[in-house]
C-alpha cells in the first residue's frame, strides 16, 4: 500500500462525496456517485481486497448507477430548494 497515492485518492473521494450530495442536478449527482464508487473500488483494490473491489466496480459503479439513472429518468431531474 502506497500512502501518498492512497491519501490523494481518499481526499478526492471525500471531495466527490461532498459534490454528490450538493449537486442540484440529480443526473450529475448520480454520475458523480458512479465516479465515487469507481474510485472507491480502486482504493479497495489497492488495499488488496480485490473481491470487494470487483464487486463495487460491478455493482456500485455499474448496476446501482443504472438503477439510479432509470429512477431519475422516470421522476424529476432537478432538486428544488
Amino acid at each position: 500500500m502506497i500512502v501518498p497515492l492512497d491519501l490523494l485518492m481518499l481526499f478526492v473521494i471525500v471531495v466527490i462525496a461532498i459534490a454528490t450530495i450538493s449537486a442540484k442536478d440529480l443526473f450529475s449527482a448520480v454520475i458523480l456517485f458512479g465516479a465515487y464508487s469507481f474510485l472507491m473500488a480502486v482504493v479497495w483494490a489497492e488495499m488488496h481486497s480485490i473481491d470487494v473491489s470487483f464487486t463495487e466496480a460491478a455493482v456500485g459503479a455499474g448496476v446501482s448507477t443504472a438503477f439510479l439513472i432509470a429512477a431519475v429518468s422516470r421522476t424529476a431531474r432537478w432538486e428544488k430548494g
Binding site: I21, L26, A29, V30, S37, V43, M47, E56, A71
Partner: peptide
C-alpha cells in the same frame, strides 16, 4: 429530495464498508 436521501444512504453504507476493509488491511 428523496433520491438525494438514497444517495446519502449509499454513501453511509460505503463509509462503513471502507471502515471494514481498512480493518482487514
Amino acid at each position: 429530495n428523496l433520491i438525494k436521501k438514497l444517495i446519502g444512504l449509499s454513501l453511509f453504507q460505503t463509509g462503513i464498508f471502507l471502515y471494514f476493509i481498512s480493518l482487514g488491511d
